[in-house]
């Protein structure tokens, strides 16, 4: 593969997307785990949609929500001076939304599994709710959260459908590695398709080993 741009773009986009998805996802998972009601079930269902929807359909929703004619899209344009869609930022949004459900679901389960008595003990000894979360709950849930973040990263790195819809397929600008593989196959460029696929496959294997061997190991 002569052009490594798609790999670097993919890595950059998925790292930023994973950071965003982790910040937002862990905060939301904490709220979902602590305040259970019918409302939280609906919120959880909405944020799980990206797992079950066809990525192109997810991309279509995002395009509709963030496109140049939408309120959000116009808001973005008035702040940053250029549209969000068909840019690298658009790719980050698509990857973030794809990664979110993995972070939320894993973090929610891990936070719910923290021994309530240990949290109670911390409250009784005077720790504020924020400190209970920071000192007790999140550290005890860190392995489960880590597994979700790793899966989210793998999902962000591998996204094709949503990225193509929201960020397009502009070589040297928004063409991520999965999209470049598709392009290479269409163009009969076997060598590029093979290299790209091997790289993505290798990263996925490493992430899965991390998830099953490091994060899932019991304390």
């Amino acid at each position: 593969m002569s052009d490594w741009f798609p790999l670097w773009l993919s890595l950059r986009v998925s790292v930023i997307a994973t950071l965003l998805a982790s910040l937002f996802g862990v905060a939301l998972a904490y709220l979902l785990a602590k305040w259970q009601s019918r409302f939280t079930a609906i919120v959880e269902a909405i944020f799980t949609l990206p797992i079950v929807l066809p990525p192109t359909v997810l991309g279509y929703y995002l395009l509709t929500l963030l496109g140049t004619r939408s309120t959000l899209g116009q808001g973005w344009e008035s702040i940053f001076g250029s549209p969000l869609v068909f840019t690298q930022s658009g790719a980050v949004v698509a990857a973030t939304v794809s990664a979110l459900p993995f972070v939320i679901r894993a973090a929610r389960a891990a936070i719910s599994n923290v021994d309530a008595r240990v949290e109670e003990a911390a409250r009784v000894m005077g720790l504020s709710e924020f400190r209970v979360a920071r000192v007790v709950t999140l550290p005890l849930a860190s392995r489960g959260i880590g597994a979700g973040v790793a899966l989210g990263f793998a999902r962000a790195l591998g996204d094709f459908g949503a990225t193509v819809m929201v960020a397009g397929n502009i070589p040297g600008q928004t063409q991520t590695l999965p999209v470049a593989v598709y392009d290479a196959v269409q163009a009969g460029d076997d060598a590029t398709a093979r290299t790209g696929s091997l790289v993505l496959g290798a990263i996925a294997v490493v992430v899965l080993i991390l998830v099953t061997q490091v994060f899932a190991r019991r304390r």
Binding site: V118, A121, M125, P139, L140
Partner: peptide
């Protein structure tokens, strides 16, 4: 101050 049956330590 509270002490539980199982210490509930961090």
């Amino acid at each position: 101050g509270m002490v539980y049956q199982h210490a509930a330590l961090l």
